[in-house]
Amino acid sequence: MDDAVVVAALVLVAAAATAAVLQRDPARQAIVLSLLGLSLAALFTVLQAPDVGLAQLAVGSAVTPLMILLTVRKVRQRKGRPK
C-alpha cells in the first residue's frame, strides 16, 4: 500500500508538467514551474531519494523563479512594454 503515495506523487508530477507546458505567459509559467519543483521534491522523497529531493527543493523554490521573473522583467523593459 506504500505504492499509493508513489502513484499520487507521479500523477501530480505529470499533471504539473503538462500544466507548465500549456502556460504561454512566462511569468505565470514561473508559478507553475515552482509547483512542478515542489511535486518533484515530493516524488523523489516517496521514492526514498531525499538528497535529490532536497536539491530540487533548494533550487526550485526560490532561485529558479527569481531568475525567470528577473529575465522576464528585463525582456519587457527592452521591448518598452509598460510594467
Binding site: 531525499p50 538528497d51 536539491a55 527543493l57 533548494a58
Partner: peptide, 11 residues
C-alpha cells in the same frame, strides 16, 4: 543525513 554541500549551499 540527507543534504550536503550543494543543497546547503543553495539554501
Amino acid at each position: 543525513s540527507p543534504g550536503g554541500g550543494f543543497q546547503g549551499g543553495v539554501v
